[in-house]
């Protein structure tokens, strides 16, 4: 019966449950704080969302391929600590490629275990979450790292620079989002990711190299983490050895808000961007309303539940349904 989930007719807008929730949300918040919808504030929300956003792009692809990636949080700690620490030792022009390679290696481990050995992605990446955190602590000896000469390095452009008044993180996030959107919707690779996530068996029967596709999705996810680490390291010019802690959940929340199915095979990069922005606006709105930082966790959860509910309700054509 699950399979017969009927898509009811009705106005197309009703099917965009997430979008509706997002708009409602913006309206409510703009009444509560008049600073909320100012260009300055909007820009700053965009900028702050870039790091989670970039990571969410990679995770979206992993999830569409039918798997999970919970290791991105500690992978971000790893990558940021590495790039910041190496910056002063070998210079940014070497620090960046070394860090990217190292991060890709972590992604390759995920990809090997999940794609080639077919282990469960929840277990593998949950294990990686703690293993990588351990790796970071070993590497840094428990110390936080920072860049001494913060003014004189071109490394600053990624987090602090801007082009035509638009902050660099926004530009990076935007360009990557467009790139991945195009890849997922128009290239053979994208099609194969959807197929593998939608029905792995049928994909194999269609001659699609399932293992290789899954492996690649984890490489992409790691690459996104590396990019996020560059933005983060460049903005903060230093790093605590657990900066990325908790990011995996925020990233996953954004992906779910964007309506990507955790069962795989369905989802969209652009909707993930929407999910990321929505999450960022909620957190920003709460801060503007003078709420303490931690209420955002509670509110975020409520919003996710409501959004997911609206989304399935729109697909079912009614709010409650005895059959899925």
């Amino acid at each position: 019966m699950l399979l017969n989930r009927l898509k009811a007719g009705g106005p197309a807008i009703a099917k965009q449950g997430i979008l509706v929730a997002f708009i409602l949300f913006m309206i409510v918040f703009s009444f509560m704080s008049d600073r909320f919808l100012t260009p300055d504030n909007i820009m700053s929300v965009f900028r702050q969302s870039a790091i989670i956003g970039v990571m969410a792009l990679g995770v979206t692809i992993v999830v569409i391929g039918g798997n999970l990636d919970l290791s991105v949080g500690s992978m971000l700690s790893f990558a940021t600590v590495l790039v910041v620490d190496l910056h002063d030792k070998v210079g940014p022009e070497l620090a960046i490629p070394i860090m990217v390679l190292a991060t890709l290696c972590l992604g390759a481990i995920n990809g090997f275990l999940i794609g080639i050995l077919r282990l469960n992605s929840l277990i593998v990446t949950l294990g990686m979450l703690s293993a990588i955190q351990g790796l970071v602590l070993i590497y840094s000896g428990g110390q936080n790292v920072d860049i001494v000469d913060q003014r004189g390095t071109w490394f600053a452009i990624f987090g602090r620079g801007s082009v035509l008044g638009i902050a660099a993180p926004i530009i990076i996030f935007g360009l990557l989002a467009i790139l991945f959107h195009v890849i997922m919707t128009t290239t053979p690779f994208g099609r194969k990711v959807y197929a593998v996530g939608g029905n792995p068996t049928a994909s194999v029967f269609s001659g699609i190299p399932r293992s290789r596709i899954v492996f690649t999705t984890y490489l992409i996810s790691a690459l996104c983490v590396a990019v996020a680490a560059i933005i983060l390291g460049s903005r903060v010019m230093g790093s605590q050895n657990n900066v990325g802690q908790g990011y995996e959940l925020q990233v996953l929340a954004a992906v779910i808000l964007g309506g990507t199915s955790l069962l795989g095979g369905a989802g969209s990069i652009l909707k993930t961007v929407l999910g990321v922005l929505m999450l960022a606006f909620i957190q920003n709105g709460l801060i503007l309303m003078g709420q303490p930082y931690y209420t955002q966790w509670l509110v975020t959860w409520v919003v996710i539940i409501v959004a997911v509910w609206l989304d399935v309700a729109a697909k079912r054509g009614r709010l409650f349904s005895p059959i899925a």
């Binding site: 099609r191 959807y194 939608g198 068996t201 049928a202 029967f205 269609s206 699609i208 369905a266």
Partner: peptide
């Protein structure tokens, strides 16, 4: 189980094995 990706559309299912060559 073996023939179709049910969540995909008709056309994409049909061209799946040769999607690489249609680029």
């Amino acid at each position: 189980e073996q023939g179709l990706v049910l969540s995909m559309n008709c056309r994409d299912n049909m061209t799946l094995p040769q999607v690489q060559n249609l680029a």
